[in-house]
Design a protein around this nucleic acid. Structure first.
Lengths: 193, 193
DNA sequence: GAACAAAAAGACAGAACGGTCTATTCTATT
DNA sequence: AATAGAATAGACCGTTCTGTCTTTTTGTTC
C-alpha cells in the first residue's frame, strides 16, 4: 500500500523538518499535518530521533537515486556525468520547495555523531563521495581519492550557499570549478598506450 | 570592565551554542554555566533570540578581525593573503574546540531570514565575500565579483566538511582549488602597459 | 456476524521551555 | 553614611515538549 500511514507520516515529517528544522518541529505538528494519531506514529517509529533518522535515510536514497537517473539521461560519458551532477544540483536549488540541504542541517543540529540522526546524515555524505569516486574512476581520471573529495566539497559548498540564495548560481559556480578540476585530472596522467 | 556579567554570559552562551546548537541550548543551561541570575540575562539581552543574534554578531567580528590579522602577518601580497585565508581556516578546523561554523548552523536552525539570528548570520557571510572581494581587487585579478563568490564557496564548503572531519584537510583541499582559480584569474586579463 | 488488529482520540504525565515578577542583597559613588 | 543601580535567588506563569496509557472506533478477514 503506497499511502500507508507510515508513508504519510514520513512525507509530512520530511516537509516540516526541511522547512522549520528538526528541533523546531514538534511531534504534534507532524501529527496535525499528517492527520495521524500519536500512537500510530510511536508504534511505527519508536521515537522522534528514530523518525528523523528514517526520514534522513529515505531522503538520502531518494536523492541519490534521482541524481543517478539524471546523470544517466544527461550523458553516457562519466566525465560529462560528473558535470551533470552540478547541473542537477542547480535544478534543485531553484526549485521553490528547496529549503537547503537536510543533511547539512541535521549534522548541525545533532552534534553528537553517535545519535541516529547524525549517523544517517553522515552516511549520506559518504554516499555522495562514493558516487563521485565511481564516476571519476570510470572517467579514468587521476588522483581519484582527492578528486572525489574535492568534488564533494564543491557540492557541499554550493548547497551551503544555496540555502541562502535559493538560486542555481552556487551550482553554476561549482560546475565552473569542477570543469577546471576535471580538465587538470584528465591531462596530468596520460593514459598508457 | 572586561569581565562584566554581560561578557560572561556572551562567552558561555557562545560555547554552548557552538557545542550543542541554538535550539538545543536552553536559557537555564546558560545561566548555570555563567553563574548569572535569569533577570541579569534578560535585562541585558531582552530575549533568547537577541542573545543569539548578539553572540553571532560578536563572533563574526572577532573571526574576521583575527582572520585579517592572520593574513597580514602571513604576507603583504594580497595574492598570497587570499591563500593564507585557507591556511587560517585549516588551523581553526584542527583546533580541539572547533565544532563547526556557527553561522552555517544558525542559518540552518533559523529558516526565517527575517529573524534576528538569521540576519546576523547572513551578515557574516556577506562580510566574508567582501574580504575576498577586497583582496582580489588589490591583487589585480580579473572577474573579481565571480572570483570572490567562488572563493567564499570554497570557504563555506570546507567549513561544512570540517564540521564532520575536524581535520585541516578540507581547508587544504580548498586551498589547492583556490590556487588554481587565482592562477587562472591572474593570467586571463593581462595588466595594461 | 464474530473476531481481530490497526488506528483514532484524547487524557495524562513529567519535564523543559522562554519569560516575568518580586523581594532582597551587594556594590559603587557621592 | 546615604543612595542608586546592578545583581541576586527563586517562585511563578503559561506553553510546549516527548512520550505513555486507555478507551473507543474502524476495517478486514474468516
Amino acid at each position: 500500500m503506497p499511502h500507508s500511514k507510515r508513508e504519510i507520516v514520513l512525507k509530512c515529517a520530511r516537509q516540516l523538518f526541511e522547512q522549520d528544522g528538526f528541533h523546531a518541529t514538534g511531534i504534534d505538528r507532524i501529527l496535525e499535518k499528517s492527520g495521524v494519531a500519536k500512537m500510530t506514529l510511536y508504534n511505527n517509529f519508536g521515537s522522534k530521533d528514530q523518525l528523523i533518522a528514517e526520514v534522513l535515510s529515505r531522503s538520502s536514497h531518494t536523492h541519490i537515486e534521482r541524481m543517478k537517473e539524471y546523470i544517466l539521461i544527461a550523458s553516457s560519458d562519466p566525465y560529462e556525468q560528473i558535470l551533470a551532477v552540478f547541473v542537477a544540483l542547480g535544478d534543485r536549488f531553484q526549485d521553490p520547495e528547496f529549503c537547503g540541504c537536510m543533511f547539512q542541517a541535521a549534522i548541525a543540529e545533532f552534534p553528537d555523531f553517535d545519535s541516529e540522526p547524525a549517523k544517517a546524515a553522515l552516511a549520506h555524505h559518504q554516499r555522495i563521495i562514493e558516487v563521485f569516486f565511481k564516476l571519476c574512476t570510470d572517467a579514468n581520471l587521476s588522483n581519484v581519492d582527492q578528486l572525489s573529495r574535492k568534488l564533494a566539497l564543491l557540492a557541499s559548498g554550493s548547497s551551503c550557499i544555496a540555502r541562502q540564495t535559493k538560486t542555481r548560481q552556487p551550482a553554476d559556480d561549482a560546475l565552473f570549478i569542477a570543469e577546471i578540476l576535471l580538465e587538470r585530472a584528465s591531462i596530468s596522467v596520460p593514459t598508457p598506450v
